[in-house]
Design a protein around this nucleic acid. Structure first.
Lengths: 334, 334
DNA sequence: CTGAAAGCGCTTACAG
DNA sequence: CTGAAAGCGCTTACAG
């Protein structure tokens, strides 16, 4: 109301008739303060709307209590990862700030480095790829941890990019009698897309089934539609393994446009368990990926690093197959 | 490498053989410094990896150069809004930090207030509803601006929640001969959902067409599916106005389960132009909402407030109708 | 063109 | 149980 600058701890001290030290002790609960003094200080602080200046506190304590989470904001599933990470961080008493950095890998790396040395964060978790130079190996600087399903730099990424269930798709469908396959892939600079493509190629090779090859190369639905439109008339019966659900819904559309039924002429699998996949006609067989839990685990890892503890052993799988209508009747191997 | 704490401007000064003042002037480009001195300072700063401690700078200048963007991270379209807002902020030389705050309105309000008085941000833009108490009216404190399509508190929200195009849906379909309507609504505590419901009710009343009422009340696809499954057998021919595309895809599924064709037995409209809507069978007539531009405009508004300028006059509409297959042949009124 | 000094708001040994 | 004083790293009048 009155002045134009927010009240400081000095204001509280003056009004409460105590020292700034006592205010600090009373409010942070650290020093020993008599109950009555603490009471008075808290009342004054409340009444004048005092809130500590975090920049000042952080500068003094060299502990900001803040963690940065970096995301590219491109995919819905990043949301879930961020939420999982924030959840764990908050439970541990940290505040998280999400920085959405699009732009190139090099720029992201720069920005991440800035955040790391800016002294505002105690740790940084990134869900988008950065160059290895941004990743801290020692404890002399702010720890930067990368937990990403997508990696433009050919560096491995862990369970979120795990594509082993794609082998189960191919094996189960082959078991059910399907002899001809097609993979509609995502962009090659994504570790997840690469892993799926490689798993696909290994599976068709191992099982000795026919493959019409790997097509696609982008994530959007239109790519899936075009992939089907480009198929020869005698392609069916065909099992289409799409790299995600968006591609799969495009495949569905393309099949309808060509008069092919699913399942029937085509069977189809997706990936990610997007919300619409349960309601398409037919509904999509897909992989449910627990991005939220993936985010939680990544944050637990960062927390362990901060505390110099051993990383928690990771338990249940993050992925599971959702058999639905688009694959027709199958006898799941697992 | 060496010490465990990052280099400070004092370190740079010592090594470069100048004062801390000169380092500051050289690096911020503010004071008058000779070219050679500036050169040397910058080289030293670079060589020892100096980066200013933002907390310290912020405390001194009382200008953080940072803006907070608050989101709930619940909807995909929030992403686009955040990106639009960040884009505008960056262009104006600000860094934005995205805080995702789920929890209740009261808690969000508290957290927002903390951010506002924490002294770290020059302005705050929230895309999720907060209580009016968090919204600053004067310039004595950090400006907090709410730009949300969703508002739990019955306070108006502007163009993102504008539902007037729903009237065009109903009018155009009535013009095309449809006589019976149904609205599958979203949750009532969303301003956008309320606006759509009210616009629907006004439209059917004005046009004198039959309405089977307003059903639904949640956003997910399953609600749309259930709405159709609950319909009497003689409901078709029926025009279904769904409050968003997720509900619409559920309606599509429900219709298929009952053996009803779309368009034919049912015509259907959605809202938001979700990416899958172009690929469902039939594709969804919907409203394209330019969330990214909505985010840009909101940030321009905040920036104008910060600079005590007049808010920029807002130009083109944020919404437009996408006529697709789910409404069958119509002659758009507009 | 350059530097010594003060101060942003807080916390924390230290002394009483 | 309480307070005076120092200092976190920076910027900025001010004096030279």
């Amino acid at each position: 109301m009155g002045g134009s600058t927010p009240p400081t701890s000095r204001d509280v001290a003056r009004i409460a008739g105590v020292s700034q030290t006592t205010v600090s002790y009373a409010l942070t609960g650290k020093g020993a303060v008599s109950a009555s003094t603490r009471q008075r200080v808290m009342e004054v602080a409340e009444s004048i709307g005092y809130r500590p200046n975090l920049a000042a506190r952080s500068m003094r304590t060299r502990r900001s209590g803040r963690l940065a989470v970096i995301t590219g904001m491109t995919f819905d599933n990043q949301l879930a990862m961020v939420q999982g990470a924030s959840e764990v961080a908050h439970a541990a008493g940290y505040v998280t700030e999400t920085h959405s950095i699009d732009e190139t890998v090099a720029e992201r790396t720069d920005r991440t480095l800035e955040l790391a040395v800016g002294g505002q964060y105690e740790g940084i978790l990134t869900f988008v790829p950065v160059l290895p130079s941004a990743l801290s190996s020692d404890r002399s600087t702010t720890p930067v941890l990368a937990a990403t399903a997508f990696d433009e730099n050919m560096h491995s990424t862990g369970e979120l990019a795990d594509a082993s269930l794609l082998d189960v798709f191919v094996s189960t469908l082959a078991e059910a009698g399907h002899r001809r396959f097609l993979h509609v892939a995502g962009p090659d600079h994504y570790a997840s897309a690469r892993a799926r493509r490689e798993t696909y190629l290994a599976a068709v090779e191992r099982l000795g089934v026919e493959s019409l090859g790997v097509v696609g190369g982008e994530w959007p639905a239109e790519t899936g539609r075009q992939a089907v439109l480009a198929l020869p008339d005698d392609a069916p019966p065909l099992a289409v393994i799409a790299a995600n659900d968006h591609l799969a819904v495009g495949v569905l559309r393309g099949a309808a446009e060509r008069g092919w039924t699913v399942p029937g002429d085509l069977v189809l699998t997706g990936w990610d368990n997007a919300d619409f996949g349960e309601y398409t006609m037919p509904s999509l067989t897909t992989i449910d990926v627990d991005f939220r839990e993936g985010g939680r685990r990544a944050m637990r890892l960062l927390l362990a690093t901060l505390r110099d503890e051993d990383p928690p052993a990771s338990e249940s799988p993050l992925q599971r197959i959702m058999w639905r209508e688009s694959t027709g009747p199958v006898a799941p191997l697992d």
